[in-house]
C-alpha cells in the first residue's frame, strides 16, 4: 500500500538484479521472474526491537577509541517513515562506513589508506517516537574498487532498516550532496529513475550543524508499505 503518486514505477524504484555495469551482479542476479506470494502473515510481521539491542554510545561512532577519531565530524539525522508518512518507531537502524581516508576496518579492504585506531565505523540506534534517528560520526572518504578502470565509490554510509514487517526491510546507502564521483558509479546509478536516485542523497543541514563541533546532514528514509494492522490470534 502506498500513498505516493510519485511517478516512479515500482520496477524503476529499486535497482535491477542484473546491472551489467556493476560487474558483480552478472553471476548473482536471478534470471527468472519473481513470484508474488499470497499475502501471508509471515511476511507482514517482523521483529520488535528494544533498548537491549543498543547501548547509548552506539550512536556516536567517534567515541570508541582512546583518542579523537580523525576527519570531519558530522551529525547525520533524519526520520524513518512508512508510505503513509507515519513514523516508524523503536526500529533498529544499523550503519557502517569507511573512515575519513576511505578505508574500512575489514580484512578484505586492501585500499592502501590509513586505518584510524580511534574509528571503527559501525553504529546503531533505535528510532524514537517520531521515527527519528541521529548519529555522530566522521565523514567517510571515497575509495577505489575494481569494478572498472579507475573506479571510485562516492562517499557513502551504509544503512540497514527494518520497519515493522519483513516486507519493509531495506538496506541502502546514504550519499553526500554534490559528490563529483556520482557520474561513474554503477551502484548509485543502478537506481534508474533519477527522482528516486536522489532520495539517497542527504542534504546539508545548517540547523543541525553544531557550532565549533560538527556539521549536520539530514537523511530521511521512507520504507515502503504501511504499518501492518495489529494481528489477532
Amino acid at each position: 500500500m502506498s500513498s505516493f503518486d510519485d511517478g516512479v514505477r515500482k520496477d524503476d524504484l529499486d535497482p535491477p538484479y542484473l546491472f551489467a555495469d556493476y560487474a558483480s551482479t552478472v553471476l548473482r542476479s536471478p534470471g527468472k521472474a519473481l513470484l508474488v506470494p499470497p499475502p501471508g502473515l509471515t511476511e507482514l510481521t517482523g521483529p520488535a526491537f528494544g533498548n537491549g539491542d543498543v547501548r547509548d554510545t552506539d550512536a556516536d561512532l567517534t567515541v570508541h577509541g582512546s583518542g579523537e577519531a580523525i576527519g570531519e565530524r558530522i551529525i547525520v539525522h533524519g526520520t524513518v517513515t512508512d508510505s503513509l508518512g507515519k513514523p516508524v518507531r523503536s526500529s533498529l537502524v544499523e550503519v557502517w562506513q569507511a573512515n575519513a581516508a576511505g578505508r574500512y576496518v575489514h580484512a578484505l579492504d586492501q585500499h592502501p589508506a590509513p586505518l584510524d585506531p580511534n574509528f571503527v565505523g559501525a553504529g546503531r540506534c533505535l528510532t524514537d517516537d517520531e521515527g527519528r534517528f541521529r548519529f555522530t560520526t566522521i565523514k567517510p572518504g571515497p575509495y577505489p574498487w575494481k569494478n572498472h578502470t579507475n573506479a571510485w565509490r562516492p562517499a557513502h554510509i551504509h544503512f540497514s532498516l527494518f520497519g515493522r514487517a519483513f516486507t519493509q526491510r531495506l538496506v541502502t546507502q546514504m550519499y553526500f550532496p554534490g559528490d563529483p564521483l556520482f557520474y561513474q558509479d554503477p551502484i548509485f546509478n543502478g537506481v534508474r529513475d533519477e527522482r528516486a536516485r536522489k532520495r539517497m542523497i542527504s542534504s546539508y543541514d545548517h540547523g543541525t550543524t553544531s557550532p565549533e563541533w560538527a556539521t549536520g546532514y539530514r537523511f530521511d528514509i521512507v520504507l515502503g508499505g504501511a504499518e501492518a494492522t495489529p494481528l489477532e490470534h
Binding site: S2, D6, P15, T172, F188, R195, A196, M200
Partner: peptide
C-alpha cells in the same frame, strides 16, 4: 528528489 520510498542498494 520526489517524495517516495527510498531505493535499495
Amino acid at each position: 528528489a520526489s517524495a517516495g520510498p527510498t531505493p535499495s542498494q
